[in-house]
Write a protein that binds this DNA or RNA. Structure first.
Lengths: 159, 159
DNA sequence: TATTATTCTGAATAAAATTCTTTTTTAGTA
DNA sequence: TACTAAAAAAGAATTTTATTCAGAATAATA
């Protein structure tokens, strides 16, 4: 778990750019695009994975296609700073909770939740959130429509 | 752009589950896991892409590795419902803005923003957000630490 | 039940991944 | 500056996978 010194050169950044856009781009294509041998690219990619620069490759699935039409953000106020960490971990275990962020200011978390519909949300709050000790209150924001959601980072040109 | 009737069977859902976990899983492996021919899997995956069930394959990159250590959520209050849509699109064009959600209640958006540091955030707000017409006010929530952020959907077992 | 469309299999071929050795480049050091 | 060690890349050989396609099986429909 040592957080090693990470140094990425131009080529690494180019690989990241390509992979962030299409994680299924094959080594041969990347190699062609960067004018290098496939074996060299393969090594670099593996190294990027090992260094945990690339955390995961995932397919982004259309929520509507699997009937997860409801998206909400919930602010969760916790009792105190002591017991807070545990709350965060418990929240993270809930499958419908896609993100858990510890936020500044008002002791608590901001979580992102996807459910089938509003009934699913109510269900989650009543049956799951309410079971977690240390939660004082929640404030829910309902998303009507998502304009953008790609989570693509801005990859710099020089490090 | 016709939103076709989408019907996914068990096999499709299994493919989605595998792909969501590791988008680089090859057809041969998926075929082995599901006990089918690679060619059959290939066809299904292509169909899932065409139907826009799979929206994209992306590598999730460690923000810290490219020095994007600051994450914030900003509530943006807009003038009225008329001009709102344009604001959403303009927000979506900003590279540092990873998500744009139209939210219920208080005419406006919730956006997710990644910047190098707090200076980058200030910079974005001063130089970019302030240039957008129709924004009345903003309320920023700073993330201290992210406990979970995988955006993996809960894929049902029956459709 | 017959008909049609869809999906799957299996084999053949093209392409890519992977491994490994040699060469080149880079970085550090005397 | 030249020497040395380490890291990265190239290139070739081999294994594995992707892709195509014809035919078989399955499912859907009339």
């Amino acid at each position: 778990m040592a957080k090693l010194e990470i140094s990425l050169d131009q080529i690494d950044l180019q690989i990241l750019r390509i992979m962030q856009d299409n994680a299924r781009t094959n080594n041969a294509d990347i190699a062609r695009e960067l004018g290098m041998a496939p074996s060299a690219i393969l090594e670099r990619v593996k190294k990027l994975e090992q260094k945990e620069v690339i955390l995961q490759y995932n397919a982004r699935i259309n929520p509507a296609a699997i009937d997860q039409k409801m998206l909400s953000f919930i602010f969760i106020k916790t009792q105190d700073i002591i017991g807070v960490q545990k709350v965060g971990l418990l929240l993270a275990e809930i499958p419908e909770v896609l993100e858990v962020h510890d936020i500044a200011g008002e002791d608590g978390y901001l979580i992102k939740v996807r459910t089938n519909d509003s009934a699913g949300l109510v269900d989650l709050m009543r049956n799951t959130l309410s079971k977690i000790d240390g939660i004082i209150s929640t404030r829910t924001t309902i998303v009507l429509e998502t304009v953008k959601e790609d989570n693509k980072l801005v990859i710099p040109f020089k490090d």
